[in-house]
Design a protein around this nucleic acid. Structure first.
Length: 414
RNA sequence: CGGGAACUGGCUCAAUUGGCUAGAGCACUCGGUUUGGGACCGAGAGGUUCCGGGUUCGAGUCCCGGGUUCCCGACCA
C-alpha cells in the first residue's frame, strides 16, 4: 500500500484527553478513531491488525473442531425475557424501532445459540458440538475507559459447546483452555490461567489475564507454578490448587479471555434436550468461551511500545515491512524504491510504502516509529550508491545494509 | 451511578479585571527553497468559542440548567 493514498493520518500531537497508552498511540498513529466514549472506528491500519488477531483465533478454533457461524447482533426481546435477562442484565442495550418494536442489542449470544441448537440437536448421536463466531458486542458499560480496554461496542470471539454429560464438557473445557494458552502466546501477550468466580452459572470459571499496569483486575500469581487467582475469590490462606504453594504475588492484569461451564443454565430456559441411548430425555450441557479480540489489540499496545510509538509483534503487525523512500527530488532513488515496492508486492510481502516526496526524512522516521511495523527498509541516495537497502528493526537500535538482490529473498519466506 | 477536571477551526492550545475585527502551531491549498531524525519563506482558506437561558452598554470569560469527554471510585456473563 502506498502511504500517500492510505486512509489514515498520523498526528504530531497526542489526543488531549486519553491518558491510556493504547488509546493515545492507536489514535495518534491513525489506527482507530474515537466516535464516542468506548466506541471506535477502525481505519485500514487498525482493521488489518484486528483481522490478524481474529484470524489467529479463528485458526485455533478450527483446530479444536469448532465450526464458525455468524449470529445477529439485533435479537428478539422474547428470548431475553425467557432467560430473565431482559430485566436483569444491567448492561443490556434495548432498542426500539419507529414501529415501537423492541429488540436487544447482543451483549452475548446464549439467547440466540441455545434455541438455534434446538433445531440441530435431538439425539446423543448429535453430540458433542461446538460453534463459534467473531462478532461485535454491545454492552452499556457504566464507565467505558482506557481506549480499547473497555468499550461499549467491541469485538469478541464467542464459542459455545454442547455435550451429553459433565465428563465430556469437562474434557472440552480443558481442550479450549489449552487452545487459549496457545492463542495468547501467538498474539504476543502470554496470559495467566486464572481461577475466578463462576458468576451466576457455576461454582468457578477461568480467566486469561495479561499482566499490565493499566489492567482493571487484580490477580494473585503463584510464585512457583504461575497459576493465578482473581482477587474476587482470593483468600489470605490460599493454597495453590496446582502445586500446593502458598507463595503469591499481587499484580494488575487485563482479562482477555474467560471460560465457563454453563451446564444446563440455558438448556433449561429453552428446553434444549436430547434423546439418550436409553430413550430418556436429557438436558444438553453447555460451555461458553470468550476472547475479547479488540481488547487484545489494546493490550498488545500496552505491552509492546516505547517512547516513540508502537512495536507490533510480527504476527499481528498491519504490514511486515515499512518501505521508506528518502528520495527528495532524486528521480533515480524514487524509481529504485518504486521498483523494490513492486518486487515486494510480487513476492507476496505485506508492505507499506512511504512514497511521499514532500515529507522530510525526520518526519518519515518519526511516523515509522509511531506506526511500529517490525521491519523498516530505507532507500536513499546513500543506499543507492551501494546498490543496497538499509534494514532497521523497530524493536532494537540495530540496522544493517543488505544488497538489493537479497532483499526479496529475505522477506518473502521468513 | 457518585466524585473531580475539561470543552475555542480537522488536531494541540492562546485570548489580561467582562472590552476593539477570537489568535498561534500542526494539518490543508498555491508559489519557492529543502531532503538520513518531526526544515524554512511568502500567500491563502478554514470559527454557531458544546447547547439553551440569564446578568450587562458589552460575555469565549460571570450566573443557572442541560450535554459530552477524560480521570478516580462503585459496577462488570
Amino acid at each position: 500500500m502506498k502511504q500517500s493514498q492510505y486512509f489514515f493520518k498520523t498526528s504530531k500531537a497526542a489526543p488531549k484527553d486519553d491518558v491510556s497508552v493504547n488509546a493515545r498511540l492507536l489514535e495518534q498513529a491513525g489506527f482507530i478513531h474515537k466516535e464516542m466514549a468506548g466506541i471506535y472506528s477502525y481505519l485500514p491500519l487498525g482493521w488489518r491488525v484486528l483481522q490478524k488477531i481474529e484470524n489467529i483465533i479463528r485458526e485455533e478454533m478450527n483446530t479444536i473442531g469448532a465450526q464458525e457461524i455468524f449470529m445477529p447482533a439485533l435479537q428478539p426481546k422474547e428470548n431475553w425475557q425467557a432467560t430473565g435477562r431482559w430485566d436483569n442484565l444491567d448492561v443490556l442495550f434495548k432498542v426500539k424501532s419507529v414501529h415501537d418494536n423492541e429488540f436487544a442489542l447482543g451483549p452475548t449470544h446464549e439467547e440466540i445459540v441455545t434455541p438455534l441448537a434446538k433445531g440441530i440437536v435431538s439425539s446423543y448421536r448429535d453430540l458433542p458440538l461446538a460453534v463459534y463466531q467473531i462478532q461485535t458486542k454491545f454492552r452499556d458499560e457504566a464507565r467505558a475507559k482506557s481506549g480499547l480496554m473497555r468499550g461499549r461496542e467491541f469485538r469478541m470471539k464467542d464459542l459455545y459447546s454442547f455435550h451429553a454429560n459433565a465428563e465430556d464438557l469437562a474434557e472440552y473445557y480443558k481442550v479450549v483452555a489449552a487452545s487459549y494458552k496457545k492463542i495468547f502466546e501467538r498474539l504476543g501477550v502470554p496470559a495467566l490461567y486464572t481461577e475466578a468466580s463462576g458468576g451466576t452459572f457455576s461454582k468457578y470459571s477461568h480467566e486469561f489475564q495479561v499482566e499490565t499496569p493499566n489492567g482493571e483486575d487484580t490477580v494473585y500469581v503463584c510464585g512457583s507454578c504461575s497459576l493465578a487467582v482473581n482477587k474476587e475469590i482470593y483468600a489470605d490462606d490460599k493454597v495453590c490448587t496446582d502445586c500446593g504453594s502458598k507463595d503469591y504475588r499481587e499484580t494488575k492484569a487485563s482479562e482477555v479471555g474467560n471460560i465457563f461451564e454453563l451446564n444446563t443454565k440455558y438448556s433449561d430456559s429453552f428446553n434444549l434436550n436430547y434423546r439418550a441411548e436409553d430413550g430418556s430425555q436429557q438436558p444438553v450441557l453447555m460451555g461458553c468461551f470468550g476472547i475479547g479480540s479488540s481488547r487484545i489489540m489494546g493490550v498488545i499496545v500496552e505491552q509492546h511500545h516505547d517512547g516513540a510509538g508502537i512495536i507490533w509483534p510480527e504476527a499481528v503487525s498491519p504490514f511486515k515491512v515499512h518501505l521508506v523512500a528518502l528520495a527528495g527530488k532524486d528521480e533515480a532513488v524514487l524509481e529504485q524504491a518504486n521498483r523494490l515496492y513492486s518486487d515486494l508486492l510480487a513476492a507476496g510481502v505485506e508492505v507499506l510504502y512511504d512514497d511521499r516526496t514532500e515529507v522530510s526524512a525526520g518526519e518519515k522516521f518519526a511516523d515509522s516509529d509511531l506506526l511500529g511495523i517490525p521491519y523498516r527498509l530505507i532507500i536513499s541516495s546513500k543506499t543507492m550508491a551501494e546498490n543496497s537497502a538499509e534494514i532497521k528493526y523497530r524493536k532494537t537500535p540495530e540496522a544493517q545494509i543488505v544488497p538489493l538482490n537479497q532483499i526479496i529473498e529475505k522477506f518473502s519466506n521468513a
